[in-house]
């Protein structure tokens, strides 16, 4: 069926099978490979994107469910050369190693700061608790989000 999805501000009209998962629509149909998939069962969170402004696990959303809605992916975080504060925070605080979980972590961190500009470390850990990282032990991810809270009061615009 035909769907129209606004992804990172740009409308895409595509004919898709109803069973196509949103993560595959983004990766295969639109070539936005920054969103990864890692577990099939909505446990790992490397596939997190914003759907109408809310973080969701795109491996467990059908592309057809995004018809008429807005999706934002990691590719839509920066504004040109200006990185979002969460992106700068992850670089500054060594918040990533292999980079595979990073896009999902960034998307949730952005959403968290949009709703709570000064989260405690406990708030950050709770907000990220649906997303796994195998490299960092989470410590520097938490510090990265705090860095973003302290050094970038608002998203890149």
């Amino acid at each position: 069926m035909q769907i129209a999805v606004v992804v990172n501000g740009e409308e895409h009209v595509r004919d898709v099978e109803p069973r196509l998962l949103l993560v595959h629509f983004l990766r295969e149909d639109l070539g936005l490979t920054g969103t990864h998939w890692g577990c099939d069962t909505s446990n790992c969170g490397v596939c997190v994107v914003h759907l109408d402004g809310v973080p969701v696990k795109s491996c467990t959303v059908l592309a057809v469910m995004a018809d008429g809605r807005e999706v934002r992916t990691v590719e839509g975080l920066a504004r040109g050369a200006d990185l979002d504060p969460v992106q700068r925070g992850f670089i500054a605080c060594h918040g990533l190693q292999c980079g595979f979980c990073t896009p999902g972590m960034l998307m949730t961190a952005r959403w968290l700061l949009d709703h709570d500009p000064d989260p405690s470390t406990e708030d950050i850990r709770a907000a990220l608790s649906g997303q796994l990282c195998r490299c960092t032990g989470y410590e520097n991810i938490v510090r990265s989000v705090r860095w973003a809270a302290e050094n970038g009061s608002e998203a890149a615009s």
């Binding site: 909505s42 969170g45 997190v48 809310v54 973080p55 969701v56 696990k57 467990t60 959303v61 949730t108 709770a126 907000a127 608790s129 649906g130 997303q131």
Partner: peptide, 9 residues
């Protein structure tokens, strides 16, 4: 229940 992202959906 589950985690914050799953709870969003």
């Amino acid at each position: 229940i589950a985690d914050p992202i799953v709870r969003n959906r």
